[in-house]
Amino acid sequence: MKSFLTLGPLLFNWDIKKIREFYFKIADEAPIECVYLGEIVCSKRAPFLEPVLQELTERLKQAGKEVIYSTSVLIESDKELENSRTRVQAWANGLVEANDMAAIHFLLGKPHCIGPYINVYNEEALLYLTEQGAIRVTLPFELPQTSIAALSQAQNRANLELQVFGRQPLAISARCAHARAYGLHKHNCQLICGQDLDGMAVLTLNQQPFLVVNGLQTLSYTYCNLIRELTELQNLGVSYFRLSPHHTHMVEVAHVFRNVLDQKYEGEEGYRRLQALLPEASFSNGFYKSEAGYVNRGKG
């Protein structure tokens, strides 16, 4: 089975100049087959991405990449709901990835993708969504290997995708902790989250790095890194491998993953190369290993 490398939606609030440069570089240089676009964390940021969405899409498609529109994680107001509906209906470039039940309702009966924010924990949920038109399902972040194995054995026509690189989204709130930390209110937040390109570090009171906050979203401080588990995941039947965009050498990161998927070198060698590329990052694979998410376990 062929293995595809994908780039998940950008979670952080980068300025448009940086976003354009980032995706142009991805288009030109990254061995990635599919890119997810869309502001999924905060509806206040969406108007900034909107004007360049089509340009980015065309650029990526010209480079031979599939482009999928990714919807909001948390929809509350009717305005957010209608914006989401309009964007989904206006998307004429291919598939849409649903990250909320409302988006699934818009997409019923049409081929679509299910994002990792939809709770697909078991075979029945997977089969139900497949019957409704899901053709690719990105599994929730906290699923262990045992669940992934069981899901991949379900009589299922949808392809399975899993995030294998990047900080892991852990929670979403109606309240903005990012604004709160800067003494601001959500309704007058000045889009302060734009200051922290990979999220705002959250330390424990004894200075231990713990989480990062990205607007309404809370992520892991550690970077999920499943490069040593890639071959096992391929054997289980997972065929799409998601990298989550960070303010780092993403093109080089993609090459390392591509090389391990293509068995140019082993996962352990890939892991060493990622350590060299991101010397400041702590990696984790705890969720996959049925442990606390922050844990990082080698072989044996």
């Binding site: 948390l74 709770n119 852990l170 979403i172 606390a292």
Partner: peptide, 18 residues
């Protein structure tokens, strides 16, 4: 946090509401 969509507890302990 939005309920049923929170893995903070399992990030720290391996056990979550879900």
């Amino acid at each position: 946090m939005a309920e049923g969509r929170c893995a903070l507890s399992s990030y720290a302990t391996g056990k979550s509401p879900n």
